[in-house]
């Protein structure tokens, strides 16, 4: 088999995403802390600037895993599998952070850290599915079979993302509905808060892109070592 050159260091674009993301992160934090408090929640509302971007990155990452898993199933190119793997891993971390920040926000506002309401339950299932994705990868030794099985989970598992996103509309829930509603385009937020939130969404997206590209490069190195 012809061995393709594996890059031993991240390319320029990866550094740009990572550099910009890390550079703008303190600015995002500053904007979040400078944003006005909410009339009902006071300063508690600021957890939103962490909670919403982490959840967004989780959803986005699982969507990218879905796309690259599909690509792998059609093209059988290990590169696509590596991007799917990298994105799922970053997504799992950020989804975990979204769950943790959500719990920290829930305790002072709702009164409990956790309750089995639809949004929380569907998101817990989503998290467990991608945990299973990595267990599955670890359990299969044959690389080709592993990639195919993982791609199947990557495609089917994504089904949980729209369910989790829409859960607050489909079922009676304790979790509030979307403040930036992508289905209707309505925004229920003070402009100053919206600015800070959108900026943090941008920063976290840049970080996601940087982390995923970096992780995919590491995965390529791992694979090269495994083959040698």
């Amino acid at each position: 088999m012809l061995k393709t050159q594996t890059p031993s260091r991240p390319d320029a674009l990866t550094w740009v995403f990572l550099g910009l993301g890390l550079l703008l992160l303190p600015l995002g934090l500053y904007l979040a802390l400078a944003a006005p408090p909410d009339v009902n929640q006071g300063y508690l509302v600021r957890i939103m600037y962490l909670h919403v971007p982490t959840a967004w990155v989780g959803y986005l990452a699982f969507f990218v895993t879905f796309l690259y898993s599909l690509l792998y199933l059609f093209r059988q190119d290990p590169r696509h599998d590596r991007v799917a793997l990298a994105s799922a891993e970053i997504g799992l971390v950020f989804m975990g952070l979204a769950l943790v920040t959500g719990m920290l926000w829930a305790r002072p506002t709702w009164g409990v850290y956790w309750t089995w309401e639809p949004r929380l339950t569907t998101t817990a299932i989503l998290f467990a599915v991608y945990l299973g994705y990595f267990l599955l990868r670890g359990a299969i030794e044959d690389p080709e079979l592993r990639r195919k099985a993982a791609a199947a989970v990557g495609v089917l598992g994504f089904l949980n993302v729209p369910i989790s996103y829409m859960s607050v509309k489909w079922w009676r829930s304790l979790h509030q509905t979307q403040s930036i509603d992508l289905t209707t385009g309505r925004i229920h937020m003070d402009p100053a808060m919206l600015q800070a939130l959108l900026f943090n969404l941008l920063v976290f997206t840049l970080l996601y892109l940087g982390f995923t590209r970096f992780r995919a490069m590491v995965a390529a190195l791992e694979e090269a070592k495994e083959e040698a």
């Binding site: 408090p37 009339v39 009902n40 009164g111 304790l174 229920h188 003070d190």
Partner: peptide, 14 residues
């Protein structure tokens, strides 16, 4: 036995 408070999705500055 447990009291949970719902809050709206609208955030407004004072």
């Amino acid at each position: 036995t447990n009291l949970l408070v719902k809050h709206s999705e609208a955030y407004q500055a004072p």
